[in-house]
Nucleic acid binder design. Structure first.
Lengths: 133, 133
DNA sequence: ATGCGTGCAAACGATTTGCAGAGAA
DNA sequence: TTCTCTGCAAATCGTTTGCACGCAT
């Protein structure tokens, strides 16, 4: 079977998780890797990807796809929730689900059994909107 | 400037649009290309991609991303709407938006200006659910 | 001592693009 | 004829994977 995340405690795992917790928005694996290197941490890009995938699978990190690229963000517990993402700075706030039951009902009405759903809102945060204007 | 879709009428454009209209679910560019070839239409993969991008930009086709791959589907007018997609057969039904105003309000409450949003529900259609069970 | 986790580089797979030729207008 | 659209193949690019070694346990 696939090994669980964190069977072993390593410096790179700590660095990655810490870097992720340090930001309040979504970041790409490449960007995260660059920042780690810049910060003096020697971590391979492959490790960043492997770690990010593991964390995502474990529900500790949320991932979204933008322009064919994966963006990650640390999200405390694995509870299901959605985001409001700034397309300019990447900052993100959590938004309440628009009645999850509604989805089930709408799907059931058409004979579908829901397995998952994605709901992300993109826009400009107050700061970026001010600058852009 | 980028040329608009259909400045010139060609056989491949017709073949692609027709193939797209013929299916009631989302399809990948590669799969669409394979089916065209199998159907006797000689169309280059690059052309399929170029056409799909043009149609998507024109709002005649909707695109979603699944597992790092883009899936396309012909959607009449360019009106904004969302889908209920079967993860097994790719069939898809349209679902009504969960109050678009709600999104605006939720975003505004946090100082965000909404530019776009994605909302897709995945599951199993009645037929696939029956077989899988 | 025993492997899990890592780094490096090669491998991958989807999508894009340069360029010369073909066909629509 | 003119110039858009196409086909082919090479180029991108984010991400994954094979393999040998180092380090946490």
């Amino acid at each position: 079977m696939t090994a669980a995340t964190g069977v072993r405690r390593t410096a790179q795992k700590a660095a990655i998780r810490q870097a992720l917790d340090g930001k309040d928005g979504f970041t790409s694996a490449q960007q995260l890797h660059a920042e780690l290197e810049a910060g003096g941490d020697r971590v391979g890009l492959a490790t960043v990807y492997r770690q990010l995938n593991a964390l995502t699978a474990a529900g500790l990190v949320d991932a979204i796809t933008v322009e064919g690229e994966q963006l990650y963000k640390a999200c405390g517990d694995g509870a299901h929730h959605h985001h409001l993402v700034c397309e300019n700075c990447g900052k993100s706030d959590e938004i309440d689900p628009p009645s999850e039951e509604w989805i089930q009902a709408a799907a059931a009405a058409r004979g579908y059994t829901v397995t998952r759903h994605v709901f992300e809102v993109f826009g400009l945060c107050a700061d970026c909107a001010r600058i852009a204007r």
